[in-house]
Simulated assay, not measured.
Amino acid sequence: MFAPQGPTFRELAVQALSSVERGYDLLAPKFDHTPFRTPASVLAPVSRVLRTLGPFDSGLDLCCGTGAGMDVLRQVCRERVTGVDISAGMLAVGRSREPVAAAAPRMEWVRADARALPFGPAFDLVVSFGAFGHFLPRERPGLFAQVHSVLRPGGRFVFPVVAPARPGSPGYWMMLAFDAAMRIRNALWRPHFVMYYRTFRLADVRAELAGAGFDVRLHALPELGRRPDGSPRCRLVVATRDRQPI
């Protein structure tokens, strides 16, 4: 699963026993050599859909990490792209990867908690990749309200969602075991490290986005395959700000 330049087992264990912020600070120098970074096979289809919806002037990568989503925003935003993350270490790595003397759009890296974004309604597009497991279900309505508040009217909040693993499949048991181990870890150890795979259910998320003031549409990503029943393995959620939160 890991490249030779990736973290050792001991380094991963230390990260897992740290807080989310401290854990990613420790992992940051080797993060891009792990399977945790969003792969190009996911980024490319998202870019394809965004090109049909744009262009956009300014974009925000929510929980940007080392900047995989920033690369997507640079393809579809004309003026400015901003990455926000709670980990200073991840931001430092992302900043170091920034193209030298790059043309527009201008790139910015901001350290902040996604639950308290330090922006006004300045963005036409917000994307996020692989970060929602770090938020408990009760935190999502507030998170979505924050995203709504930083989008201009008509702005889009876009992220991919993978279909849940079929019950009884190896992927199902792996996710179940991971979430169970994480709950045991957090019951016995402080600080907590919040990362759960099975709590981000599309039906719940759609209702929460609607409650925050979004009109929600889904786009299939056929490049990522189909399930045995013919449904897409991955969909792109496109939530558009068109009204005030209820």
Rank of each mutant, 00 (worst) to 15 (best):
F119M: 11
G133H: 05
L60N: 05
S41L: 15
P99I: 08
F2P: 07
S87A: 15
P232R: 02
A103H: 13
G142Q: 03
A212E: 05
R227H: 09
V49P: 01
S96P: 05
A3P: 00
A210L: 08
A13C: 11
A40M: 06
C77E: 05
P191Q: 13
F157M: 04
M174C: 06
L26Y: 04
R241G: 06
F178H: 10
A112G: 09
M175A: 15
R106K: 15
L43W: 04
Y172R: 04
L12I: 15
A16T: 02
R226D: 04
V127I: 08
P170S: 02
V161S: 06
P35R: 13
V49Y: 00
A104E: 14
G67M: 00
S87K: 07
A239W: 04
Y197A: 01
H134G: 07
L26E: 00
P4Y: 09
F56K: 01
L53Q: 02
P137Y: 08
S149T: 12
V100L: 15
P232V: 00
A28V: 12
R95C: 06
V76G: 06
R217W: 07
P164K: 12
A165I: 10
A104P: 15
R201N: 12
M1E: 11
E98A: 10
Y24Q: 06
A122G: 04
G213N: 00
E79R: 13
E223T: 00
V158W: 01
G6L: 11
P7F: 04
L151I: 10
K30Q: 15
S19F: 13
A112E: 14
L125T: 07
S96K: 08
R106M: 13
G54D: 03
A210Q: 06
V84N: 09
R74Y: 04
V205I: 08
P245W: 11
R233T: 02
F144R: 00
S87F: 02
V147I: 09
G171S: 10
V161F: 08
A16D: 13
G59Q: 08
V93C: 04
P153V: 11
P39N: 15
F144E: 01
D204W: 15
A163M: 07
Y24H: 06
S96L: 12
F56N: 07
T38F: 00
A131L: 10
M195F: 12
A68V: 05
H219F: 10
M195L: 13
P228Q: 09
D229F: 14
A180T: 07
V158A: 07
D242E: 11
R227S: 11
L236R: 02
V84W: 10
F200N: 08
